[in-house]
Amino acid sequence: MYKLRNLFKYSFLSIAALVSIFPFLWMIIGATNTATDITKGKMTIGGELFSNLSMLFKMVDMKNILLNSGKIALISTFLLLLFASLAGYGFEIYKSKNKERLYTILLLTMMVPFAALMIPLFRMFANMGLLDSHIAVIIPTIATPFMIFFFRQNTKTFPPDLMQAARVDGLNEYQVFFLIYIPTMRSTFAAAGIIAFMTSWNSFLWPLIVLQSDGQKTITLIISSLSSAYFPEYGVIMVAIVIATLPTILIFFLLQRRFVEGMLGSIK
Protein backbone atom coordinates (compact mmCIF):
# COMPACT_ATOMS: atom_id res chain seq x y z
CA MET A 1 0.00 0.00 0.00
CA TYR A 2 2.78 2.39 0.98
CA LYS A 3 4.79 1.53 -2.13
CA LEU A 4 1.76 1.94 -4.34
CA ARG A 5 1.08 5.37 -2.91
CA ASN A 6 4.69 6.39 -3.50
CA LEU A 7 4.54 5.16 -7.08
CA PHE A 8 1.41 7.19 -7.66
CA LYS A 9 2.89 10.26 -5.99
CA TYR A 10 6.14 10.25 -7.97
CA SER A 11 4.49 9.52 -11.29
CA PHE A 12 1.89 12.23 -10.75
CA LEU A 13 4.54 14.82 -9.87
CA SER A 14 6.78 13.69 -12.73
CA ILE A 15 3.97 14.08 -15.24
CA ALA A 16 3.11 17.52 -13.83
CA ALA A 17 6.77 18.56 -14.04
CA LEU A 18 7.12 17.22 -17.58
CA VAL A 19 3.98 18.99 -18.78
CA SER A 20 5.21 22.21 -17.16
CA ILE A 21 8.66 22.08 -18.73
CA PHE A 22 7.68 20.71 -22.13
CA PRO A 23 6.54 23.98 -23.81
CA PHE A 24 9.96 25.46 -22.97
CA LEU A 25 11.67 22.61 -24.82
CA TRP A 26 9.17 23.03 -27.63
CA MET A 27 10.05 26.72 -27.84
CA ILE A 28 13.80 25.98 -28.08
CA ILE A 29 13.36 23.15 -30.58
CA GLY A 30 10.95 25.32 -32.57
CA ALA A 31 13.55 28.08 -32.86
CA THR A 32 15.73 25.66 -34.85
CA ASN A 33 13.03 24.48 -37.25
CA THR A 34 10.98 25.83 -40.15
CA ALA A 35 7.36 26.91 -39.77
CA THR A 36 6.16 23.86 -41.73
CA ASP A 37 8.08 21.47 -39.48
CA ILE A 38 6.71 23.13 -36.37
CA THR A 39 3.07 22.91 -37.45
CA LYS A 40 3.71 19.24 -38.28
CA GLY A 41 4.97 18.65 -34.75
CA LYS A 42 8.65 17.94 -35.45
CA MET A 43 10.30 17.17 -32.12
CA THR A 44 13.99 17.14 -33.05
CA ILE A 45 16.53 19.96 -33.21
CA GLY A 46 16.79 21.30 -36.75
CA GLY A 47 19.38 23.42 -38.52
CA GLU A 48 17.31 26.56 -39.10
CA LEU A 49 18.29 28.59 -36.04
CA PHE A 50 20.52 31.06 -37.87
CA SER A 51 18.24 31.51 -40.85
CA ASN A 52 15.32 32.10 -38.43
CA LEU A 53 17.41 34.64 -36.56
CA SER A 54 18.45 36.55 -39.66
CA MET A 55 14.89 36.41 -40.97
CA LEU A 56 13.62 37.89 -37.69
CA PHE A 57 16.11 40.75 -37.89
CA LYS A 58 15.09 41.34 -41.49
CA MET A 59 11.36 41.35 -40.74
CA VAL A 60 11.45 43.66 -37.73
CA ASP A 61 13.82 46.19 -36.21
CA MET A 62 14.72 43.98 -33.23
CA LYS A 63 17.26 46.32 -31.69
CA ASN A 64 14.79 49.17 -31.54
CA ILE A 65 11.98 46.91 -30.26
CA LEU A 66 14.08 45.49 -27.43
CA LEU A 67 15.20 49.01 -26.57
CA ASN A 68 11.55 50.10 -26.40
CA SER A 69 10.59 47.19 -24.13
CA GLY A 70 13.66 47.63 -21.93
CA LYS A 71 13.20 51.37 -21.60
CA ILE A 72 9.52 51.11 -20.71
CA ALA A 73 10.06 48.25 -18.24
CA LEU A 74 13.02 49.86 -16.44
CA ILE A 75 11.50 53.34 -16.14
CA SER A 76 8.14 52.08 -14.97
CA THR A 77 9.75 49.67 -12.49
CA PHE A 78 11.89 52.44 -11.01
CA LEU A 79 9.04 54.93 -10.68
CA LEU A 80 6.60 52.32 -9.39
CA LEU A 81 9.04 51.21 -6.67
CA LEU A 82 9.66 54.81 -5.66
CA PHE A 83 6.04 56.00 -5.49
CA ALA A 84 4.55 52.77 -4.13
CA SER A 85 7.16 52.43 -1.38
CA LEU A 86 6.73 56.09 -0.34
CA ALA A 87 2.96 55.58 -0.21
CA GLY A 88 3.03 52.18 1.51
CA TYR A 89 5.41 53.61 4.11
CA GLY A 90 3.32 56.75 4.53
CA PHE A 91 0.09 54.81 5.04
CA GLU A 92 1.66 52.45 7.59
CA ILE A 93 3.87 54.84 9.62
CA TYR A 94 1.65 57.95 9.69
CA LYS A 95 -1.75 56.35 10.26
CA SER A 96 -4.77 58.61 10.39
CA LYS A 97 -8.49 58.16 9.89
CA ASN A 98 -8.57 59.96 6.56
CA LYS A 99 -5.61 58.03 5.23
CA GLU A 100 -7.27 54.75 6.17
CA ARG A 101 -10.41 55.77 4.28
CA LEU A 102 -8.36 56.65 1.24
CA TYR A 103 -6.43 53.40 1.53
CA THR A 104 -9.66 51.39 1.56
CA ILE A 105 -10.78 53.15 -1.63
CA LEU A 106 -7.43 52.33 -3.24
CA LEU A 107 -7.81 48.66 -2.31
CA LEU A 108 -11.32 48.57 -3.76
CA THR A 109 -10.03 49.80 -7.12
CA MET A 110 -7.98 46.59 -7.30
CA MET A 111 -11.25 44.70 -7.81
CA VAL A 112 -12.10 46.73 -10.91
CA PRO A 113 -10.79 45.08 -14.08
CA PHE A 114 -8.60 47.02 -16.44
CA ALA A 115 -11.30 46.75 -19.11
CA ALA A 116 -13.38 49.25 -17.12
CA LEU A 117 -10.49 51.74 -17.03
CA MET A 118 -9.08 51.50 -20.50
CA ILE A 119 -11.63 53.57 -22.41
CA PRO A 120 -11.41 56.70 -20.21
CA LEU A 121 -7.63 56.26 -20.05
CA PHE A 122 -7.43 56.03 -23.82
CA ARG A 123 -9.53 59.16 -24.23
CA MET A 124 -7.48 60.99 -21.64
CA PHE A 125 -4.20 60.28 -23.42
CA ALA A 126 -5.76 61.04 -26.79
CA ASN A 127 -6.83 64.47 -25.50
CA MET A 128 -3.33 65.11 -24.20
CA GLY A 129 -1.91 64.15 -27.60
CA LEU A 130 0.17 61.41 -25.99
CA LEU A 131 -1.09 58.41 -27.97
CA ASP A 132 1.68 56.36 -29.55
CA SER A 133 4.13 57.57 -26.90
CA HIS A 134 5.97 55.54 -24.28
CA ILE A 135 4.90 58.04 -21.62
CA ALA A 136 1.30 56.93 -22.12
CA VAL A 137 2.34 53.30 -21.62
CA ILE A 138 4.32 54.07 -18.47
CA ILE A 139 2.23 56.59 -16.52
CA PRO A 140 -0.83 54.46 -15.61
CA THR A 141 1.49 51.74 -14.26
CA ILE A 142 3.58 53.75 -11.79
CA ALA A 143 1.31 53.84 -8.75
CA THR A 144 -0.70 50.63 -8.77
CA PRO A 145 -2.81 49.97 -5.65
CA PHE A 146 -1.40 46.45 -5.54
CA MET A 147 2.18 47.67 -5.09
CA ILE A 148 1.14 50.24 -2.47
CA PHE A 149 -0.59 47.39 -0.64
CA PHE A 150 2.51 45.21 -1.04
CA PHE A 151 4.81 47.86 0.46
CA ARG A 152 2.44 48.63 3.29
CA GLN A 153 2.23 44.95 4.25
CA ASN A 154 6.02 44.69 4.23
CA THR A 155 6.50 47.94 6.14
CA LYS A 156 4.85 46.17 9.09
CA THR A 157 8.11 44.21 9.44
CA PHE A 158 10.27 47.36 9.54
CA PRO A 159 11.65 47.57 13.13
CA PRO A 160 10.31 50.70 14.95
CA ASP A 161 13.48 50.80 17.11
CA LEU A 162 15.53 51.47 14.02
CA MET A 163 13.34 54.43 13.15
CA GLN A 164 13.49 55.82 16.70
CA ALA A 165 17.27 55.50 16.78
CA ALA A 166 17.59 57.33 13.47
CA ARG A 167 15.34 60.14 14.72
CA VAL A 168 17.39 60.46 17.90
CA ASP A 169 20.49 60.73 15.72
CA GLY A 170 18.89 63.79 14.15
CA LEU A 171 17.71 62.40 10.81
CA ASN A 172 14.56 64.03 9.47
CA GLU A 173 11.59 61.94 8.33
CA TYR A 174 12.65 61.81 4.68
CA GLN A 175 16.21 60.87 5.60
CA VAL A 176 14.82 58.04 7.71
CA PHE A 177 13.01 56.76 4.62
CA PHE A 178 15.83 57.13 2.12
CA LEU A 179 18.83 56.33 4.34
CA ILE A 180 17.41 53.74 6.75
CA TYR A 181 14.18 52.25 5.35
CA ILE A 182 15.31 51.59 1.77
CA PRO A 183 18.60 49.85 2.67
CA THR A 184 16.91 47.81 5.43
CA MET A 185 14.08 46.71 3.17
CA ARG A 186 16.20 45.92 0.13
CA SER A 187 14.84 42.38 -0.16
CA THR A 188 11.30 43.79 -0.31
CA PHE A 189 12.43 46.19 -3.01
CA ALA A 190 14.08 43.36 -4.94
CA ALA A 191 10.95 41.22 -4.77
CA ALA A 192 8.69 44.10 -5.80
CA GLY A 193 11.11 45.09 -8.55
CA ILE A 194 11.05 41.64 -10.09
CA ILE A 195 7.25 41.55 -10.17
CA ALA A 196 7.06 45.11 -11.53
CA PHE A 197 9.63 44.46 -14.24
CA MET A 198 7.96 41.23 -15.36
CA THR A 199 4.52 42.82 -15.43
CA SER A 200 5.73 45.70 -17.57
CA TRP A 201 7.92 43.60 -19.87
CA ASN A 202 5.06 41.19 -20.53
CA SER A 203 2.16 43.64 -20.66
CA PHE A 204 -0.02 43.44 -23.74
CA LEU A 205 -3.46 45.06 -23.66
CA TRP A 206 -2.59 48.64 -22.69
CA PRO A 207 0.44 48.94 -25.02
CA LEU A 208 -1.70 47.38 -27.76
CA ILE A 209 -4.23 50.18 -27.34
CA VAL A 210 -1.74 53.02 -27.00
CA LEU A 211 1.13 52.19 -29.34
CA GLN A 212 0.29 52.38 -33.02
CA SER A 213 3.43 52.87 -35.10
CA ASP A 214 5.84 49.96 -35.53
CA GLY A 215 8.80 52.03 -34.35
CA GLN A 216 7.22 52.45 -30.91
CA LYS A 217 6.08 48.87 -30.31
CA THR A 218 7.32 46.46 -27.67
CA ILE A 219 8.52 42.89 -28.11
CA THR A 220 5.23 41.49 -26.79
CA LEU A 221 3.23 43.41 -29.39
CA ILE A 222 5.57 42.37 -32.17
CA ILE A 223 5.33 38.68 -31.24
CA SER A 224 1.55 38.93 -31.20
CA SER A 225 1.37 40.64 -34.56
CA LEU A 226 3.84 38.19 -36.17
CA SER A 227 1.72 35.26 -35.00
CA SER A 228 -1.56 36.69 -36.22
CA ALA A 229 -0.46 36.30 -39.84
CA TYR A 230 -2.50 33.83 -41.91
CA PHE A 231 0.53 31.56 -42.19
CA PRO A 232 2.58 32.43 -39.12
CA GLU A 233 6.37 32.10 -39.54
CA TYR A 234 6.58 29.94 -36.42
CA GLY A 235 10.34 29.34 -36.59
CA VAL A 236 10.98 33.07 -36.60
CA ILE A 237 8.34 33.66 -33.93
CA MET A 238 9.92 31.00 -31.68
CA VAL A 239 13.24 32.81 -31.89
CA ALA A 240 11.49 36.04 -30.89
CA ILE A 241 9.73 34.26 -28.00
CA VAL A 242 13.05 32.82 -26.78
CA ILE A 243 14.57 36.32 -26.85
CA ALA A 244 11.55 37.80 -25.04
CA THR A 245 11.48 35.06 -22.39
CA LEU A 246 15.23 35.03 -21.72
CA PRO A 247 15.34 38.07 -19.37
CA THR A 248 12.50 36.76 -17.21
CA ILE A 249 13.95 33.22 -17.06
CA LEU A 250 17.33 34.65 -16.04
CA ILE A 251 15.77 36.78 -13.33
CA PHE A 252 13.82 33.76 -12.12
CA PHE A 253 16.84 31.47 -11.81
CA LEU A 254 19.17 34.09 -10.37
CA LEU A 255 16.70 35.51 -7.86
CA GLN A 256 14.26 32.65 -7.30
CA ARG A 257 13.81 33.33 -3.59
CA ARG A 258 13.02 37.02 -4.06
CA PHE A 259 10.75 36.12 -6.94
CA VAL A 260 8.64 33.86 -4.76
CA GLU A 261 8.73 36.39 -1.90
CA GLY A 262 7.42 39.03 -4.27
CA MET A 263 4.45 36.87 -5.13
CA LEU A 264 3.72 35.84 -1.58
CA GLY A 265 4.20 39.34 -0.20
CA SER A 266 0.57 40.06 -0.88
CA ILE A 267 -0.73 37.46 1.60
CA LYS A 268 1.49 38.42 4.55
Binding site: L13, A17, M27, M198, W201, T220, S227, Q256
Partner: peptide
Protein backbone atom coordinates in the same frame (compact mmCIF):
# COMPACT_ATOMS: atom_id res chain seq x y z
CA UNK B 1 13.14 20.07 -8.87
CA UNK B 2 9.40 19.37 -8.87
CA UNK B 3 8.60 22.73 -7.29
CA UNK B 4 10.77 24.73 -9.68
CA UNK B 5 9.56 22.84 -12.74
CA UNK B 6 5.87 23.25 -11.91
CA UNK B 7 6.36 26.92 -11.08
CA UNK B 8 8.35 27.66 -14.25
CA UNK B 9 5.35 28.46 -16.52
CA UNK B 10 4.85 31.65 -14.46
CA UNK B 11 7.88 33.30 -16.06
CA UNK B 12 6.37 33.27 -19.54
CA UNK B 13 4.42 36.20 -20.86
CA UNK B 14 0.74 35.54 -21.54
CA UNK B 15 1.25 36.34 -25.21
CA UNK B 16 4.29 34.05 -25.57
CA UNK B 17 2.74 30.96 -24.02
CA UNK B 18 -0.50 31.43 -25.94
CA UNK B 19 1.46 31.31 -29.17
CA UNK B 20 3.43 28.26 -28.02
CA UNK B 21 0.13 26.51 -27.37
CA UNK B 22 -1.29 27.69 -30.68
CA UNK B 23 1.63 26.06 -32.50
CA UNK B 24 1.33 22.81 -30.52
Amino acid sequence: FFRTAIFLPCVTSLVAYSILFKSM
